[in-house]
Simulated assay, not measured.
Amino acid sequence: MSYPRPALNEALERSDVVHDANTIADAVKEMAAHIADEYRDDVQAPLFITVMNGGMPFAADLAMALGDEGVDVEFEYLHATRYRGETSGGARLAWLHRPQTALRDRRVLLVDDILDEGHTMLAVKRWCEDQGAADVRIAVAAVKLHDRCAEGIEADFVGLEVPDAYVFGYGMDYHEQGRNLRAIYALRN
C-alpha cells in the first residue's frame, strides 16, 4: 500500500514489521485480562486517562477489551509532550491539555503507546499523584528494550516489547505520520 505522504512511504521501505496487527490484538486482549483482575471488583470505575496523541489507538482497543472483561472505565485524556513533532524529546514537558476530572481519591490508569525513556510518563504520573490520585497505574502498548529508562518509572501493564530502534505505527509516529498503521515498524539502521 502506498500513502500520499512521501516521507511515510520512504520510512516504510526502510523498516521491518516488529509486531503485526494480530500479535498486537492478542497482546491487548491478554493485557485487558490482567488489568481486569486489578479493577473488576472496584465500586467506582477507574479513571482511564489516554495520553494523546500516541495513546489513542491502543487506548481505544484496550478500553473495548476491558469492557469485554466486565470492567467499566471513566474516560479522560491528557496531552503532554516533550517531542513536539521531533524524534527526540526536549528537556521541558509541554502540557497541551490536562484532565478536567478531579483525580482526588481516584484510581487512575494512564494509557499510552510506548514507554521509552519514561521522562514524560514520570512527570505525568507525579502530576496525577500531586492531584491526589489514590493509585496511579500505567498501561502501555509497548516498552522499548534498553537501559536508559528514567529512574522511578515503569509500566504496570505491558503489551509488547520493541527493539531499541526508531519505532512507529499503532499510535507511534514517524514525524507525525503513520500513527494509524495497524502494525508496529522499526527503522533499519
Rank of each mutant, 00 (worst) to 15 (best):
Y3P: 05
Y3L: 09
P4C: 04
P6A: 12
L8M: 07
L12C: 12
D16G: 09
V17N: 11
V17I: 15
V17R: 08
V18R: 08
H19T: 05
D20R: 13
A21E: 15
T23S: 15
I24K: 05
A27D: 03
M31Y: 00
M31V: 05
A32S: 06
A33H: 07
H34C: 13
I35Q: 01
I35V: 09
I35T: 02
I35W: 00
E38N: 08
V43C: 01
Q44D: 14
Q44S: 13
T50V: 10
M52V: 13
N53L: 13
P57R: 01
F58I: 06
D61V: 02
M64N: 14
G67L: 13
G67I: 08
G67M: 14
D68H: 15
E69F: 06
E69M: 14
E69K: 14
E69P: 01
G70L: 13
D72Y: 05
V73L: 06
F75K: 12
F75N: 13
L78D: 01
L78W: 03
H79W: 13
A80L: 09
A80M: 10
T81P: 11
Y83H: 14
G85M: 12
G85Y: 12
A91S: 15
L93H: 04
L93T: 09
A94R: 14
A94W: 10
W95V: 03
W95T: 04
W95Q: 10
W95L: 07
L96S: 11
R98H: 12
P99V: 10
P99K: 03
P99C: 04
Q100G: 15
A102V: 13
L103P: 09
L103R: 08
R106L: 03
V108E: 00
V108W: 00
V111C: 01
V111S: 00
D112R: 01
D113C: 06
I114W: 01
L115V: 14
L115T: 07
E117L: 06
G118R: 01
G118F: 03
G118E: 04
G118Y: 01
H119N: 06
H119Q: 13
M121G: 03
M121A: 10
A123T: 11
K125A: 08
K125G: 07
K125E: 09
W127V: 10
W127C: 10
E129A: 05
Q131S: 08
G132F: 04
G132A: 07
A134T: 06
V136H: 00
A139M: 00
V140A: 02
A141M: 11
A142G: 06
V143H: 02
D147G: 12
R148D: 07
R148Y: 04
R148Q: 09
C149S: 08
C149Q: 15
A150G: 12
G152P: 09
E154G: 10
E154F: 03
A155C: 01
D156F: 04
G159L: 00
G159S: 05
V162W: 03
V162H: 06
V162E: 06
P163K: 10
P163Q: 08
D164K: 04
A165G: 03
A165W: 02
Y166V: 12
V167D: 01
V167F: 05
V167S: 03
F168Q: 07
F168K: 07
G169H: 02
G171L: 10
G171Q: 09
D173A: 12
Y174L: 12
Y174N: 13
Y174R: 09
E176I: 13
G178C: 08
R179P: 05
N180G: 06
L181Q: 11
L187N: 05
